[in-house]
Design a protein around this nucleic acid. Structure first.
Length: 880
DNA sequence: CCAATCACG
DNA sequence: ACGTACGTGATTGGT
């Protein structure tokens, strides 16, 4: 038995409309190089792919509305009268969508005087007579009136990705009506978007009730006398003409005079090459990537050849003098511990690969390396991997990862495959070749080496592309003079590592552990029940259900038990303080004792990895372990006593920028008052307190005033809101607003700066730092208040936080040079956003105390001085 | 794999 | 009217 013919009918206009708005907030991202928007095309295309994959239709037709009036407008002049014109950004995409359909091999059709609905209605009825199965896809629920046992209507839900399926049974379930009764319902209700009236005061509920009771509008008016006198009955009588007209307008034609028939429908499948050309023209890289490889690309794949290096053929590599892509490959993330699985050198016309990294250590290869001009993807990784073999890499020529990060920090991936794809270069993802999780493995030699060569070629292909883009974005200097050399400095810091005194940390850990156990027992006794204290869920149940403490705040999943909540509950029960204490020691023990002990390597040191391409602002981040969040306050700061110099007689030295972000703000805002405060080295928080509290002398500033002023200073840097500030310092929103108003009055140019950054973000789509680091803020145009507000705060904060990051990065590069030039034994170990931590011989401390602040405060020249404070001692704890 | 919590600047 | 501070990472429990 042959399967029935499957027909897919799509309401082109309504789906395009939904598609457009599904990605409306992302419209800026979906634009091709000619400025044509592609958000609707993109979403429409995804919808097509999904529905075709799911339904496997034999025939497809996409129906469109024909511009100009329809028979409905002739019948009712105001039909769709109130509707705003579709936005031009959508209109420009309709012809492209039709082109897309052509290339997909799908028919499309429109008819003068009729809407897409009527085309679909007519064809679906014809298809039913022919014994076909039809699916209708639309964004308009009115079309559900067409549903039968052989015609299913799918209505887009939440954008266009999800469809709700309407069969007669589903309609019965949902409304208690038959599909044709949908028309009667609509007639009574009217339709505001199509601008026809219906009956006064009748909405969906009443309409459904009336249609269920009477069957149809005609039957309703034939039997009006059955209704008891009421306002509703009066309305029905008065609006009878409108109701009947509305029903006619809502009725989809099933006999439109189409100039096509079932025979004209087809679905031949896509023309891949045409689609490729279209996607390329539209810059639709995701769609492009999904297409099967072209004959050309396949040929390239087949053409991959390489030389597997060994002692005998090494000479060929040593002959390479042109620029090359290079990598030492490892399977796992942590390159301090991962085993290398191979390495490659790829030039424009040659490729050398090997699984044997010891070849790198051969003197001939090392000599070759000193002269090599290498392009890499994540060079810091290669530098560390090579260093573990005792091999030093030359200064690297180009790092694809760093370049791509600077071009757009939020579209940055840690995978060459992803980044290449984003720039129109095709190379498999590491995950595809190596697998992930437990399945990750070294593939067979051919697969591995082929991947090496492809990665090498991608790096070479990306280098000129990204170089051009960096230049266009005026980020060349930032790239060549900042991030590239910084990678080298960071690699050195990571390789050096910081020594952890195991016994010290263990002893502290034992103490905390026993405190933890004692508190645990005490809490169970106070609660009268044993439970898992580490589970906020269980703790919440105990506190708020068993002990009936007042609920202060809820999270998405239940009661909040955060510090702020517990602080408020302190007076309600003695158990609270114990829980707070428990939390503190539990955190210290698990993260800072167990965690750090586990991270210590055989050399007795902790080697963190700095992620140079992660944060949105240009800061570094630190992982495995994070050495940028080692406790600095309260009991926790004891942990710092376990961080010691690597050699006897050495000390830990630390310098930090004092209020660097506020100084940056004083500089970039040009605010005279704020600049004066820093030029005269006044206490900035006290200064702010005087300004916002209207005091005449610093003596009048109470500690509490200073505290509030400090919070206000922070708030300003973060892109203030009165609500946020009020919450933070525990004053009313009104008072917080008064603080902010006072602040802006005293620092008027800071106010101007805030407004200017938001304006800049709106106009150019991004904000930038002192050194032209970009941050893109697509959400600045969002219709969603939250997203938009967030983008606005980010616009204010990023240039501040990011410029401070630029400054310390400059300092770090110069610092390394300074240490080298002065032949100091001291070395830089850590960076914690505004501070640098060193170790060195005790005799060098005085030199560091002189030179380190000098390098740091001269890193850039601002309108205000940069202030640096230094300390040193036998442990990190003492270097404060 | 996500949410909650808490550590840092 | 909308709900809100900016940037991170590790651990734990729970799906």
């Amino acid at each position: 038995m042959a399967d029935k013919v499957k027909l897919l009918l799509i309401d082109g206009n309504s789906v395009a409309f939904r598609a457009f708005y599904a990605l409306y907030t992302q419209m800026d991202r979906f634009t091709n190089s000619e400025g044509l928007h592609t958000n609707a095309v993109f979403a429409f295309n995804n919808m097509l792919d999904n529905i075709v994959a799911q339904q496997k239709p034999d025939k497809i037709l996409v129906a469109f509305d024909k511009s100009g009036g329809t028979f409905r407008t002739k019948m009712f002049g105001d039909y769709k009268g109130q509707r705003d014109a579709a936005p031009s950004e959508l209109l420009e995409q309709l012809p492209v969508i039709k082109e897309l359909l052509d290339d997909h091999g799908m028919a499309h059709y429109e008819l003068q005087d009729y809407e897409a609905d009527d085309i679909i209605g007519t064809l679906s009825r014809e298809a039913e007579k022919a014994g076909w199965e039809t699916t209708i896809v639309t964004g308009d629920r009115d079309l559900t009136q067409l549903a039968t046992d052989h015609i299913t209507v799918q209505v887009t839900k939440k954008g266009v990705a999800e469809l709700e399926t309407y069969t007669p049974a589903h309609i019965e379930d949902k409304f208690g009506l038959t599909p044709t009764q949908i028309i009667d319902m609509k007639g009574l209700m009217g339709d505001t978007s199509d601008n026809y009236p219906g009956v006064t005061k009748v909405g969906e509920k009443t309409a459904i009730k009336l249609v269920t009771q009477f069957g149809s509008i005609e039957d309703l008016y034939d039997n009006l006398d059955q209704l008891k006198p009421s306002k509703m009955k009066e309305n029905l009588v008065n609006d009878e003409a409108q109701a009947r007209l509305s029903k006619t307008l809502a009725t989809i034609k099933v006999d439109a005079p189409l100039t096509i028939g079932l025979d004209d429908l087809h679905y031949a499948g896509p023309d891949i090459e045409k689609l490729r050309a279209l996607y390329t023209r539209l810059d639709m890289r995701q769609a492009l990537a999904k297409l099967p490889a072209s004959a050309q690309e396949t040929a390239v794949h087949e053409a991959i050849t390489y030389t597997v290096l060994d002692d005998a053929n090494l000479a060929a590599l040593l002959d390479v003098h042109e620029p090359a892509a290079f990598e030492v490959e490892m399977l796992t993330e942590n390159y301090h511990t991962a085993d290398p699985i191979g390495w490659f050198v790829v030039t424009a016309d040659q490729a050398f690969v090997s699984s044997d990294v010891t070849l790198l250590t051969l003197p001939a290869v090392q000599t070759w390396l000193t002269e090599a001009k290498l392009a890499v993807f994540d060079g810091k990784r290669d530098i560390v991997a090579a260093a573990r073999l005792g091999v030093t890499l030359p200064a690297l020529a180009f790092d694809v990862l760093l370049a791509s990060y600077l071009l757009n920090p939020d579209q940055n991936a840690n995978d060459l495959g992803q980044i290449a794809q984003d720039h129109g270069v095709s190379v498999p993802f590491d995950e595809t070749v190596y697998g992930k999780g437990a399945k990750r493995h070294v593939p067979d030699e051919v697969a591995l080496f082929t991947h090496f060569v492809e990665k090498g070629r991608a790096i070479l292909a990306l280098q000129p592309l990204l170089t051009t883009k960096l230049k266009e974005q005026e980020e060349t200097h930032l790239f060549t003079e900042l991030e590239m050399p910084l990678a080298q400095v960071l690699a050195q810091m990571e390789i050096t590592g910081i020594t952890l005194e195991r016994a010290t940390l263990k002893a502290m850990g034992d103490q905390w552990r026993s405190t933890q156990t004692v508190l645990e027992e005490k809490i169970y006794a106070e609660a009268g029940v044993k439970f898992n204290l580490n589970s906020p869920k269980q703790l919440g149940e105990v506190l708020f259900e068993k002990l009936n403490l007042p609920v202060i705040k809820k999270t998405k999943t239940g009661y909040s038990t955060s510090v702020e909540v517990l602080e408020e509950l302190k007076s309600a029960s003695p158990i609270i303080q114990d829980i707070l204490d428990y939390r503190q020691v539990a955190k210290l023990f698990s993260t800072y004792v167990t965690g750090l002990l586990n991270a210590q390597l055989a050399d007795g040191k902790i080697h963190t990895r700095y992620l140079q391409t992660l944060t949105q602002t240009g800061r570094l981040s630190s992982v495995d372990p994070n050495l940028q969040n080692i406790p600095a306050r309260d009991e926790g700061k004891q942990v710092r006593k376990a961080f010691i110099p690597s050699k006897p007689g050495w000390q830990i030295f630390s310098s930090d920028y004092s209020q660097i972000e506020l100084r940056v703000l004083a500089h970039i805002s040009g605010d005279a008052n704020m600049q004066e405060a820093f030029k005269e080295d006044r206490d900035i928080h006290a200064n702010t307190a005087m300004k916002i509290f209207g005091l005449d002398s610093p003596d009048q500033v109470t500690p509490d005033m200073r505290r509030q002023a400090k919070a206000t200073n922070f708030g300003i840097v973060y892109g203030i809101s009165d609500f946020g500030l009020a919450k933070n310092i525990g004053v009313t929103r009104k008072q917080a607003k008064a603080f902010i108003d006072g602040y802006f009055e005293q620092y008027p140019q800071v106010h101007d700066y805030m407004e200017k950054m938001v304006k800049v973000a709106r106009e150019q789509g991004y904000v930038e730092t002192l050194m032209h680091r970009h941050r893109y803020l697509g959400d600045i145009h969002s219709r969603n208040f939250n997203l938009r507000s967030f983008a606005e705060r980010t616009a204010m904060n990023s240039p501040i936080q990011g410029s401070a990051a630029d400054i310390i990065k400059v300092a770090m590069i110069r610092m390394q040079a300074m240490l080298d030039e002065n032949h100091l034994h001291s070395r830089m170990l850590l960076q914690v956003h505004d501070e640098l931590i060193f170790e060195g011989p005790a005799e060098e401390m005085a030199t560091l105390a002189e030179l380190v602040p000098k390098v740091m405060d001269s890193a850039v020249s601002l309108a205000v001085p940069l202030k640096v404070e230094s300390h040193y001692g036998p442990t990190w704890f003492d270097a404060k």
